[in-house]
């Protein structure tokens, strides 16, 4: 494949037979495979992420990065207090993030609860902005499979073309990998043509080794994206966790030829943070992932900071939150 190993990698490349079709033939085979993945050097991953975070991105490169980051935002509202009015408001913001500047690109998608999908789909029809819906008893994932599948089908039939599912962390941590695998396969089937993002909730997975295993599990089961977290617990997305996941998608493509996207979500609030993530994407997975189809930010407050930075670069003076919508 085109991706080449970097000497600074924190992990050895995964050398696997190209045929991964039968690793999920049994619980034992799946466990053997996942536990056979090389361990993550935690200190190394943290240090690598910290180093990448020190890159200085300025002027035209920063401008480009900010516009790219805006195009990668999944503008998210996941509150119990969400109303159709609020969803319409964020859809308007998704279409024209900065109404004062027509050159400002639209975001990638709007992410809402299933009950709000119809409203969002109506608002975004014909704009090219995707409608993402969380499903499968988000955020805990603690519901019977039938309920999760109905949840997914309802969201898709209302117009969602991206489904953000949560894995059963309880089953994963208990070592019942096959159960998690089958569930992802079932949800993928229920989602049909909709893109499936698999939320690992890395804050509950405890170790980077588990993050790597869950990433592979999500990809093997057919996920189109792997996503760090729900944003409902801390820690949410962190740079080292995203680094581990980016290594996983890079390795997965080099083994199977299928490219899987990555979406860090939660806790990314400043343009500076977003640019650190973009640097990490470029240095870990490669340029192929520097595209809204392959990398997304799950965020709400990040967008305003990106817009303020963008305005600052255009006008030469610092902007303020008074000039952008609150949500």
């Amino acid at each position: 494949m085109t991706v080449t190993a970097k000497s600074t990698d924190t992990s050895p490349r995964v050398e696997r037979p190209t045929d991964l079709a039968d690793v999920a033939r049994s619980e034992a085979a799946l466990r053997t495979f996942l536990h056979g993945l090389p361990g993550v050097d935690q200190v190394g991953a943290d240090a690598r992420a910290a180093t990448l975070g020190t890159r200085s991105i300025k002027t035209s490169a920063k401008k480009w990065a900010i516009d790219l980051a805006i195009r990668m935002v999944d503008l998210t509202t996941l509150e119990g207090a969400d109303t159709p009015g609020k969803v319409r408001a964020i859809c308007a913001k998704a279409r024209r993030p900065d109404p004062a500047d027509p050159t400002c690109p639209a975001v990638a998608a709007v992410c809402v609860y299933p009950s709000m999908v119809a409203t969002a789909a109506e608002e975004l029809r014909g704009t090219g902005i995707h409608v993402a819906s969380v499903a499968t008893a988000f955020p805990s994932g603690q519901a019977p499979l039938a309920v999760k599948l109905d949840d997914t089908r309802a969201a898709v039939s209302d117009g969602a073309d991206e489904i953000d599912m949560v894995i059963s962390r309880g089953a994963f941590l208990a070592g019942r990998y096959m159960e998690v695998f089958d569930e992802i396969v079932a949800v993928k089937q229920a989602a049909g043509a909709a893109h499936l993002k698999v939320i690992l909730e890395t804050g509950e997975l405890a170790t980077y080794d588990n993050v790597r295993r869950a990433s592979w599990l999500g990809m093997l089961a057919g996920g189109d994206f792997i996503k760090t977290s729900t944003g409902k617990i801390t820690p949410a997305a962190t740079l080292p966790v995203t680094l581990v996941m980016l290594e996983a998608v890079r390795d997965f493509r080099s083994v199977t030829g299928r490219q899987v996207g990555v979406k860090p979500a939660g806790g990314i609030r400043t343009s500076k943070d977003a640019i650190k993530y973009l640097v990490t994407v470029n240095e870990t997975a490669g340029e192929d992932w520097l595209d809204p189809d392959w990398f997304r930010f799950g965020a709400s407050t990040l967008l305003n900071d990106l817009l303020m930075q963008r305005t600052k670069m255009a006008t030469g003076r610092y902007s303020g939150p008074d000039y952008f919508t609150l949500d």
Binding site: R317, G320, P321, Y323
Partner: peptide, 9 residues
Amino acid sequence: PWLASHMDV
């Protein structure tokens, strides 16, 4: 000048 032009002041 940065303080004077800052939009949040």
